[in-house]
Design a protein around this nucleic acid. Structure first.
Lengths: 199, 199
DNA sequence: GTTTGTCAACCGTCCGGCCGGTGCAGTCAG
DNA sequence: CTGACTGCACCGGCCGGACGGTTGACAAAC
């Protein structure tokens, strides 16, 4: 997939709205896929939503696959950055990374929720088109897992917390009815015991 | 979605292979979606794979949505039956259901793995077409969760185990590289501590 | 006991529509 | 003159769905 990144780094600030065209297109595609589902993401729809002609979109992304790859790459970057930010905000602790994951799952601000839905939609769209497109995110998660492994915890504990986080995320994405706040707190407490260095 | 179950209960045993046509079509559709991905599941492909004409398929499932609904309903039944079987096989224990979930995740026989991949593929295909199709499985999972809640465990523990199970499942489905056997065992042990009645 | 009718279970073809992608002529800023 | 588009026409393919047969089993009619 030739993509070669942007056709130059920010050459034209000429934009009636938003950032450069690439970013606007990516944003538009995300919005569509999140609001109207994977099948609604067509080149024409993305172009219209981005305020760009179809030809213009194809100028930036030579194919639908390239568009999805762009979406996915950006998503991977954002996810990694988000995790790193949460991790940085976490006070030092022998199980700092694991606790960061905990915070990441449970303490997300309200606004982040929609971003996560969008991320999931992008993820699914890419998987739908070609599972190999997920490689960039797979790498990100591998790196996160490696950080968890480095925590000073009994083996398996960190992974258990991460797996639970994944499960919770998935449940939200697919609309399984989530536990209410009370149960959620208990769940968090249960996982937190796994993130304690002793036993 | 009118489905009204089979257009009669087994009126015609005339079948060159496999069970009745409905079942053969469902099986074929599952095979396709698992082996070649969601987009490959077209009415024609399913019909061919089932050894039936497209018209014949449409006779049994009046639309693609009906086919997916059939797939999903059967999946929901299977999942529930599978869980119930694992639960039955589990020796009595205050946290019997939670331990059943643990066994379900970790002790699956090799053969079950492909079945789970197939289940995931069906799930995703249905979600892709219309998220509302997932309702039957949502109900199944709700029932399973209710059983978990009934376990004599500190609040949150059972849900944590289930969430971790979901996460592991998802990771496998989307091809995140799984922990090796050793880590897996540690993970299981960690979750097992959550399934102990004493704190 | 043959004819006739009926009905479920299909078969094969066709259509309309959409979607990804191409091509191209033209525009406009720098 | 070039790079970044616009706008549009168009194609080839595929896919869901509709439709009009056809076949074969069984039953009632004669």
């Amino acid at each position: 997939m030739p993509d070669g990144s942007s056709p130059a780094a920010e050459p034209r600030p000429r934009a009636p709205e938003g950032g450069d065209a690439r970013t606007r297109i990516l944003d538009a595609a995300e919005r569509i896929v999140q609001a109207r589902g994977v099948p609604a993401l067509t080149l024409e729809a993305a172009a219209r939503e981005a305020g760009v002609s179809k030809g213009g979109l194809l100028y930036h992304f030579a194919s639908k696959e390239a568009l999805l790859a762009g979406l996915l790459n950006r998503l991977a970057d954002h996810v990694e950055a988000e995790f790193l930010a949460v991790l940085e905000a976490e006070p030092p602790h022998p199980a700092r990374a694991t606790r960061a994951v905990l915070a990441w799952i449970f303490d997300h601000p309200e606004a982040a929720c929609e971003k996560h839905q969008r991320a999931a939609a992008v993820f699914l769209a890419a998987f739908h088109h070609d599972p190999a497109l997920l490689d960039p995110i797979r790498a990100v998660f591998r790196r996160i897992r490696d950080r968890l492994r480095a925590d000073a915890l009994p083996p398996g504990h960190a992974l258990a917390v991460m797996a639970a986080g994944d499960g919770l995320f998935m449940a939200r994405v697919f609309g399984m009815d989530a536990p209410e706040a009370e149960e959620m707190a208990a769940l968090r407490a249960a996982l937190a015991t796994l993130a304690e260095p002793r036993a």
